[in-house]
Amino acid sequence: MNFTKTYILASNSPRRKELLTNLGLPFQTRVKEVDENFPPDLVRAEVAEYLAAHKASAYRQDLQPEEVLITADTIVCLDEKVLNKPLSHAEATRMLTHLSGRSHEVYTGVCLMSLEKSVVFSDVTTVHFRDLTRDEIDFYINQYTPFDKAGSYGAQDWLGMVGIERIEGSYFNVMGLPVHRLYEELQTF
């Protein structure tokens, strides 16, 4: 693949950095603090896409002509409720207790932006958790401090390895970037 632009990843996520590196995409990282609130009338994929586009808008004025910005936001939805990043051990415990023994959806919204255009897309993966014990949940939170993860877990972490029975869709989407969709979109961007 011939990547001719300068790609900017607007994320500090080690998982997104790893995925772009494994894709073979040369990139630089830029990070700004961007508010992650969203309008309450948005649901599921709309939330992820809104947040990705919102993050990108914070960088637009700094883009150079040869640059393509990549922003992403991953959310976990259980029924119709969005589970954001937990603010405390107690909140992480509540989230993981609700996810235990159930399936949920993981949506990742992505925005590609240059000075000339922008494209926003998303992908969804259904994740099925087995029943988790309180000891497993406590161990995970104490050892892995998942406070930077939507839904209080990382699929690539210990809890993902022992708790996820199966997924329907892209594993990489659950990690925080639907690499297959990103690759497709970059072909025509």
Rank of each mutant, 00 (worst) to 15 (best):
F38S: 01
F129R: 03
R134D: 14
H180I: 10
N2D: 12
E165F: 00
I70Q: 06
D62T: 11
Y183M: 14
M95R: 02
A56S: 10
T93I: 15
E18V: 00
V110F: 08
V119K: 15
A53E: 08
E67H: 00
Y7L: 04
K32T: 00
Y144I: 03
Y140L: 08
Q28T: 13
G169D: 04
H180N: 14
F189H: 06
R134P: 09
H54F: 09
V110T: 02
P26N: 04
N2F: 15
R16V: 05
Y153D: 03
F129N: 10
G151M: 01
E116S: 14
V120Q: 13
C111F: 05
D138K: 15
S170Y: 02
R134I: 12
K32G: 04
P39G: 09
A56F: 06
F139T: 09
L23R: 07
H104R: 08
A56Y: 01
D135T: 13
K32Q: 09
V31I: 15
L69E: 10
L96E: 08
P86E: 05
R181D: 14
L25P: 02
K149S: 04
P26Q: 13
S114V: 11
T21P: 03
R94F: 14
P146L: 11
Q143D: 12
C77T: 02
G163H: 03
Y107V: 03
I70D: 02
T93F: 15
I141H: 08
D41H: 15
L87N: 12
I75A: 09
V34E: 03
D79I: 05
M161Y: 10
S118H: 15
L186E: 01
R102Y: 09
L132E: 04
L42N: 01
P26Y: 13
